[in-house]
Amino acid sequence: MLTIEEVKKIAKLARIDLTPEEESRHADTISVVLDYMKILDEVDTTNVEPTAQVTGLSNIVREDITHECTIKKELLAQMPQVDQNELVVPAVFE
């Protein structure tokens, strides 16, 4: 069971503003989902390796070559705030 306090805590970690109604709704629905996950407790996973990927590929690297960026203007056009071709961001330290 997920409490409203726990929802508030994870919402803060995830940087999402929630209304009190949303907090209560998420506490209810996520509790139901987490409860369903208990089905996995039936499975004995002693000595079972976790699977993080299925390709079997590892250490795929490419040569470290720089390429000319041909879409600088388009990238800048997507930024929320630009000043003299630089991205403007709010102050990190107050």
Partner: peptide, 10 residues
Amino acid sequence: KAQQVRTLIK
């Protein structure tokens, strides 16, 4: 735990 069960499904 989910990743371990994922191995068994695979």
